[in-house]
Nucleic acid binder design. Structure first.
Lengths: 193, 193
DNA sequence: GTCTATATAATGATAGAC
DNA sequence: GTCTATCATTATATAGAC
């Protein structure tokens, strides 16, 4: 069964990469199973040999995109400050916003999560926590460092999401630039709250 | 025709308030025209006497929500620093995230904009620019002030969007708290970029 | 202006041949 | 495991009575 298993695995990954890109760029509801399968070079009927439902595919695709993309761009542990800064700049770039390769589901799908089922949302949340951890400077952090990490990640996700939403591309560039500056700056000190 | 005109206007506003809430909370695709009209106390057939399409309603509802909500909470001009800070704290509150009243379409619908038609996107963009202007301290601003205003608004929109997406309510509260601190803090100085 | 009824099209999911 | 064919549901939008 070696060949058969390998074939199934290939099909599954083809579906996942295709779905990850389509969902991120167009959103969950705008993309049909038919559309995913055709883009993956198969027909609708083959879908349910790999996934139990569309929502199941959604969760798996988010995880797949996060794993492949993030692992490639930034080591999970012991990454350097330079690596983190390069990652932030790349994340808040116009290329990432265009979404050609495999966009980050955190930014591209934020406001699509609120009404998804628990499986999808918990996957998204796990990916979010992973990014916060990855961008934190050290393993053990102070509350201030944790707060600064959250602010940075929100500015990254929010910046890309807003830039994508805007109709005015000049303003979108300005937003990206401002967020790069904000996310790369030294964490804001004790703030009023 | 005074009574007739007034009646039509009432129906239109009832549809708009209902739609603004439903779209924000559940997203454009998840809400049907039938659902909006039933919640507004009418049937599907009456819809097209007021709006030309579902996308048309979407754009109008976003504008309506922004106008009514923002005008009530924060004066467009000559607002004080205290008013702005209260607005930011209310925006990044758990109550706003729950979305009971009339949630802000900027945060609740960010990543839903990218694939909408130009009318909807340009309405959203106008509302965004309005909020940036409103939160800017003065009429004439330096580039640094403009950058700080953009960072603040991104942190507000991103913070609410992320908090809503998260499955873990404790982490969501932590995100909101961090963003309140970040958005209320003095603008970060000249940052590397 | 609002109603009921309907045309038309798409979707998610299943059944059965190969 | 992938295909074609189909079911059941739901949606936008329109037509015509009142």
């Amino acid at each position: 069964m070696a060949w058969g298993e390998d074939h199934k695995q290939r099909s599954r990954e083809k579906i996942l990469t295709t779905a990850a890109g389509l969902f991120a760029r167009e959103g969950f509801d705008k993309v049909s199973i038919d559309q995913v399968m055709q883009a993956a070079g198969m027909t609708r009927g083959a879908f349910y040999a790999h996934f139990s439902s569309k929502a199941d595919l959604y969760a798996e695709a988010i995880l797949y995109a996060a794993n492949t993309a993030a692992e490639n761009y930034l080591p999970a542990q012991r990454n350097t400050a330079e690596q983190r800064e390069a990652f932030i700049a790349a994340y808040l770039s116009e290329e990432h916003c265009k979404g050609a390769d495999m966009p980050c589901p955190l930014a591209f799908l934020v406001s699509d999560m609120a009404n998804q089922d628990q499986g999808v949302r918990s996957t998204w949340s796990k990916v979010f926590e992973g990014l916060v951890q990855r961008l934190a400077s050290s393993e053990t952090q102070t509350p201030q460092e944790q707060q600064a990490a959250l602010q940075r990640v929100v500015m990254m996700i929010g910046g890309v999401a807003v830039a994508r939403a805007l109709n005015d591309s000049d303003l979108a560039s300005e937003v990206l630039q401002a967020c790069r500056a904000g996310a790369l700056a030294a964490p804001a000190g004790e703030a009023r709250d």
